[in-house]
Design a protein around this nucleic acid. Structure first.
Lengths: 352, 352
DNA sequence: CTGTTAGCGCTTTCAC
DNA sequence: GTGAAAGCGCTAACAG
């Protein structure tokens, strides 16, 4: 029952079958063709390994072969389905190339982020995919300096000097704007958040461009800016909007969470959505589609984001040139518009 | 800029400061007191290490010291905030003891589960905390056989032979029942799912016991059982319930997701909640508190679950006796009742 | 077809 | 106060 209480190594099984460690090593790794082992030998070795309960030692292996075929993935949190989908995408691609994934979370703590990143470097990962953590640029640099490529996902740090993968902001905002335009909206406002996120900032900029492209006016007092992660601030901005004499007929929110909070406050104010105010978000996050709460949005394609991030790393690995051609290799994926009740429905009632 | 392109090891820095690898090793690990190093020596070594960009090699370290101070954590998925909270709890406790965490996801695939678990064993983790994956009992056994303790979290496999940590089912169900009873409900139904989950089964059993304790009748045709992960099946069961002549005035759902689907369907059927039917769930998952959708439930205390799981492992590690006293060491944490609109509100309207 | 020989980068007695 | 030497468990030339 309690077998293998005592660690069994290559040597033990070599002794068992009266062969050398080398032969055993090859056999166990299926490299028999590379050195031409007798099939029966291989068979015998496998049998013994199983019988003795042999378990290869990852560390020893990595140490000598000086490679791990692994990439570190560092999230800020594990809430929502974001990490799930991104990880899925990453592993889709990495699996094809026989790479393995090392997951970690920073819980939005700078020191935790640094610690986890350091650990990954100590574990000699071949690359890192990370959600940017504010004020940790030094950490990213550290990795790069040690020759470990970093790819950012979903967003990227202000100094846009490393590869990143994110939803295409122009495309997303334009799709929303165009959708609202086609519904007849001419007076469109924006609810953004005051936060130093390049991706959010780009969406803000894209809003103005988009309006212009559609020949619509961009009133500066229709651009609202709430504090990040502060529901109250969103509520206040929504109330301000509603109180305005001449107010927009549609509101684009810079992200789904903001849009959902907006919807909540509008309900409390008994403002009919979309009749009195159409609302749209960006992201298609968990909960944006809901019997009581269905939000028009642009899908962030997080699985695809993960895939692209992994592809960048793989490409960099394959062409293991020392030509150091890092540099902004940025992928922007175009997400589909998802029209739902908050712009197109018969009010915010349970969907059919 | 691109420093440390060439790997620098203990030897390099030893040469730099003209000392031995040994001394350098001690200094860098802060074990100076254990061997009494000259403070200036230590200083010099640290300086050199920083200058050369030294990065310790995790594997070499693990290989020689034959320990990793790490535990593997294996989730079925990363959706919702479950994994987040559990991981938080685990790291709370593990951090105190200088253990590190290796995260992995199975995406509910058996082979993925087995693969990740195997990888953890190869990496020589000191213990494993896992959400049970159906049909993988062999894998858990494997770990145990190799002397790596496994602790289950949130649920546990049918053969309850390893430690596990979960919400106390009796307590949770009774709190719900008692709450409903106090609200005047006497006719209470149960909506369960047909799934081989011990924890869910226990909740089902607890329902009958609970009713009895309250002196209420348990009508067998008020116990509904939907198929797992099949919204349609939930909807059908809800419709059946509503169609019944004499039907319950309150419904306990075996989990929050089921309760939320129920709420959705009830809205579609224009059944007023809680007036026509009060609804409660268990778990307090992400989305159960919502402007349009607020569910009475019992909190699963996932952070605490994580902490308890980690504590079990730590205890087992500290008392590193070979006395093999595994065996059902099960922790059941009692979660608080959270009363919300679905039992106590003025109908399912935006909350105040 | 299989074995010998060197290490990988680090820790840890034990001796100076 | 510091260092030499012996590996940890495994892989990868290079021989036979």
């Amino acid at each position: 029952m309690a077998r293998a209480r005592v660690k069994v190594g290559l040597g033990d099984i070599a002794r068992e079958v009266d062969l050398s460690k080398t032969t055993v090593s090859y056999a166990l790794r299926g490299k028999q063709d590379q050195v031409n082992l007798a099939p029966e030998t291989v068979e015998k070795i496998h049998e013994a390994a199983k019988r003795l309960g042999y378990r290869p030692n990852y560390w020893a292996r990595a140490l000598v072969s000086k490679k791990t075929k692994s990439v570190g993935v560092l999230f800020n949190d594990l809430t929502g389905s974001s990490a799930h989908e991104i990880t899925k995408g990453i592993q889709d691609v990495l699996g094809l190339h026989d790479y393995e994934t090392m997951l970690a979370v920073s819980f939005w703590q700078e020191d935790k982020f640094r610690k986890e990143l350091k650990l990954m470097l100590e574990k000699r990962v071949d690359g890192i995919i990370a959600a940017p953590q504010p004020n940790c640029e030094d950490s990213y640099k550290l990795a790069a300096d040690e020759g470990v490529p970093v790819v950012f996902i979903s967003d990227y740090p202000p100094s846009n000097v490393m590869p990143s993968v994110a939803l295409d902001p122009e495309d997303a905002v334009y799709k929303l704007l165009n959708h609202l335009h086609q519904l007849g909206h001419r007076d469109i406002g924006l609810l953004s958040v005051a936060y130093n996120s390049p991706v959010l900032l780009e969406r803000e900029r894209a809003f103005e461009c988009g309006l212009e492209k559609l020949g619509l006016e961009c009133k500066s007092n229709w651009i609202y800016r709430a504090e990040l992660a502060n529901e109250i601030s969103v509520y206040e901005n929504v109330r301000n909007l509603i109180r305005q004499q001449h107010r927009p007929s549609a509101l684009v929110c810079v992200s789904d969470p903001v849009a959902m909070q907006t919807l909540g406050e509008l309900a409390r104010l008994e403002v009919a959505v979309p009749e009195d105010l159409a609302v749209a978000g960006i992201g298609n996050v968990d909960g944006s589609d809901h019997p009581f709460f269905s939000l028009t949005t642009v899908d962030e394609c997080r699985v695809e984001l993960g895939r692209e991030a992994a592809r960048i790393l793989i490409r960099q690995q394959e062409s293991s040139d020392d030509t150091d051609n890092y540099g902004p290799q940025n992928v922007r994926v175009k997400g589909p518009l998802i029209t739902r009740a908050s712009t197109v429905g018969a009010g915010l009632r349970p969907k059919r």
